[in-house]
């Protein structure tokens, strides 16, 4: 499977995606997200203070998942340079953030990944890596990633859309489930997910289709039981994430005829409590090229922050905390039901 960009698909363009999201369906449009927020006194949406500094280290990935909002894959070459990483470190020195959240693509494929993790750790930040698991076994040079993570007390957050091969592989590619189980065992072996180790291994569930996630707690129980009994795998928590109608998942929704019903579902499941707790209020997202965004989804839709400085070179947390968060119709994905964020549900269901 190739990325939308490699196949020159029209949805590889952020403008085309925004046109779909803002367009009319059967002559009607969904209530603008801003209007929905205004109904509950949440518009304009403003930050509560940057706690999470999320850096996208590039779109390069060893997998080409069917739902990927980044349109990542082996054919994507965009990665963050060391110079941009140095600008990130400078920004973190001047304006410390409690957590540095590294994502991609597969962030480990960036040749400066380990150096950047070490430097972030030196600054005293908790480093979190969004690891797709199979990267650990993709090449001998990655086999020692579990030890590297352990040595730097990195929190590992790993996608696992289901606890069986069929549904996982349909979303993430042939053989991904077996590879993921192998990688999880390697992480467990160095202490990740083990009680008392202090090494945190969290899993991320996202639906393999046009439906919403079940309550996080229910899913966590099912995952824990099956992974423990059938594979002897332990983990800390499971985050349930709603798929966002962006990039390859948007393409799937349109191709399968599910777009309208999925958007209806998101809109009708709008939860003001989840809206008040959306992640863009305490997160800043840095693109591979250093541009600043309210979240990783706005990054992929090329909607930079509304602030004087839109690049990491001019990073000013104080100024960013005064901004208005940029909103579009995809934002309904974070406010449906129990809510959704990079850390899972944001409201009690």
């Amino acid at each position: 499977m190739k990325s939308l960009k490699a196949t020159q698909h029209r949805l590889a363009s952020a403008a085309s995606q925004l046109e779909v999201l803002g367009g009319l369906r059967d002559g009607k449009s969904f209530t603008p997200f801003e209007d929905k927020l205004a109904t509950f006194g949440l518009f304009p949406l403003r930050p509560t203070g940057i706690e999470i500094f999320q850096a996208n280290l590039g779109k390069m990935c060893n997998q080409t998942c069917g739902h990927c909002h980044v349109d990542a894959g082996p054919d994507r070459k965009e990665i963050m340079t060391r110079e941009t990483m140095q600008q990130c470190l400078e920004a973190l020195r001047r304006f410390p953030a409690a957590t540095v959240d590294l994502t991609g693509g597969a962030p480990e494929m960036n040749p400066d990944f380990r150096w950047f993790v070490e430097e972030c750790t030196r600054l005293g930040a908790k480093v979190m890596v969004r690891c797709n698991l199979t990267i650990i076994i993709a090449n001998p040079k990655y086999y020692d990633l579990p030890e590297f993570y352990r040595d730097h007390q990195v929190e590992v957050v790993s996608s696992l859309p289901f606890y069986n091969a069929d549904r996982t592989d349909r979303q993430r590619g042939e053989g991904v489930f077996v590879g993921s189980m192998k990688a999880l065992k390697m992480l467990n072996a160095v202490g990740y997910g083990q009680q008392g180790s202090g090494l945190v291994l969290n899993l991320v569930y996202n639906p393999a289709g046009a439906f919403l996630p079940a309550p996080q707690q229910t899913l966590e129980g099912q995952f824990r039981k099956v992974l423990s009994e059938e594979f002897g795998i332990e983990f800390n928590s499971l985050f349930a994430i709603t798929n966002m109608p962006v990039s390859r998942y948007l393409e799937f929704l349109l191709r399968s005829g599910n777009y309208e019903s999925y958007m209806e579902k998101l809109v009708s499941a709008f939860n003001p409590t989840a809206a008040a707790g959306v992640m863009c209020r305490n997160t800043i997202s840095v693109g591979w090229d250093g541009m600043l965004y309210d979240c990783d989804f706005n990054q992929m839709l090329e909607l930079p922050v509304q602030a004087a400085a839109q690049h990491i070179s001019g990073y000013n947390a104080g100024e960013l905390n005064d901004r208005e968060i940029v909103l579009r119709q995809h934002c309904y994905g974070c406010t449906a039901g129990a809510g959704s964020s990079c850390g899972g549900a944001t409201a009690a269901s």
Partner: peptide, 11 residues
């Protein structure tokens, strides 16, 4: 069918 998928049942 959708509800059962959402509730985490397998096919």
């Amino acid at each position: 069918s959708t509800d059962a998928l959402e509730k985490g049942y397998t096919e």
